[in-house]
Each structure stands twice: as structure tokens, then as C-alpha cells.
Design a protein around this nucleic acid. Structure first.
Lengths: 104, 104
DNA sequence: GCTACTGTTCACCAAGTGGTTAACGATCCG
DNA sequence: CGGATCGTTAACCACTTGGTGAACAGTAGC
């Protein structure tokens, strides 16, 4: 199990899959066409996304319908937001720091 | 070289370092104390963050002053924002989809 | 029933990751 | 100078990751 949204997003192919699914549900073929890797590779990436809870899968006949599970991605997004709130302060701190450097 | 902010953030220790640095610059010891791993392990994590451009290092005597480089993290944050904008639509799409399912 | 299609699982492999201990380099301080 | 401190580098190891081809399972359609 991975259970870490950042780890799930740490591979460009998986981010690509998320990007496509962000536009709406899709089958495996639709969501992963054109990445230029074999089907087993895709299958593994999907498993990571599914284990992490980023993607949900519903089997429909011989195709699988994939959809995003936005709540899990929100954990990562919220972390980014919290850090970004601090970056705002950081700009000030670094500004201050650089000014101190100049005046010495 | 890593050159991928998501990959840089894909390890909890590196996120911890970023969290501490988001509150302001710090030395290696200050920024990485209490992670419970050896110094070489820390050194490697720092190298990843530095290679990616997330963290900047200035040598000051025998200590190293670390600070965040927010622009690079913004690349990741912006990606999250773009996806999140789509998730908004996604909620609607999924809603629609579920309703269709009910009515069949 | 047979064939085509969608997708997974299996077995394998090369490369990368994350950790260790030991040794080192450089700086500060008595 | 000599010792303590901050941090890196080197060499090594176990495990994970990301990929492959081959085979399989299930469904759809002729």
C-alpha cells in the first residue's frame, strides 16, 4: 500500500492519468492512451492510484470505468495551501534577511 | 538530478524539511533535527531538495543556511490548483453520472 | 463456438531509493 | 595546537520502482 497522495503524484504518467480523469470519468484505455508504455505498466500505475485512494474503479463489462476521488487529492492540495500560506510570510522573512545582509 | 517538485515532496522527511523551512531559513541541524535518521540520510534528502531547486543553501562558516525557493514549489502548487479547478467540474460530472445511474 | 478486445497477473530484470557505518573536510574555540 | 562541532562523501546493502513479454480471464460480437 502506498497511502501517500504525493507519492502517487510523483510519477509523470500518474499525473497524466489524474489530469485526464480530472476532465471526467474514463475507461482505462481512454485515460491512459498515448503514454507509450506497455499495458502492464499502466496497470501498475493504476493500482498505485487506486491503492492510494486517488482513483476509483468500477468494472463495467470488459471495461473498467475510472473516476477521481477528489477528497484524497485534497489532502495534498491542502498541504500545499498551508505551505503556501507560510511562503507568504517567508517572502517577508527573506526580504528582511536580505536587507540585514546589505546593511552589514 | 530529480527536477520534479512532486518527486521532491514524495518523501515525508523532505516534506518535513520544507515545512520547517516554510517558517523561515534555518541551518541543516535546525531544519532536520528529530527525524530519527542518520546525518548522511539527511544530507541526501537535502541534496534532492537542492537539485530540484526547492531549497537554496548558503555556506556560512561551518554551518549551512537553508532557505526555501518558493517559485519551484509554486510549479507543484499551480498544478494542484489547475486540477482542483477541474475537480469542481468533476463533482458536477460525477453527480450527473450518478443520477443517470439511478434513473436506469 | 470462435475470435477480437479490454485489462490483469505472473515472472523477470535493471535502475533507483533510502538507509547504514566509517572516514573525511572545514570551522570554531579553549 | 587539539578537540569538538557541523556537515559531506564514500562504500555498501536491502528494498522498491518501473519497465518488459507472455499468458491468462472475462466480455462482446459475429
Amino acid at each position: 500500500m502506498v497511502n501517500d497522495p504525493f507519492k502517487a503524484l510523483s510519477h509523470p504518467i500518474r499525473r497524466g492519468i489524474v489530469e485526464r480523469l480530472a476532465e471526467g470519468p474514463a475507461t482505462v484505455g481512454e485515460a491512459t492512451g498515448g503514454f507509450g508504455v506497455s499495458k502492464p505498466a499502466i496497470s501498475k500505475h493504476l493500482k498505485v492510484l487506486e491503492d492510494t485512494g486517488v482513483v476509483k474503479r468500477v468494472v463495467e463489462g470488459r471495461t473498467h470505468r475510472l473516476s477521481l476521488e477528489p477528497e484524497v487529492l485534497s489532502v495534498a492540495a491542502d498541504w500545499m495551501d498551508r505551505q503556501r500560506a507560510l511562503w507568504g510570510r517567508l517572502f517577508d522573512v527573506v526580504d528582511e534577511y536580505l536587507k540585514e545582509g546589505e546593511s552589514q
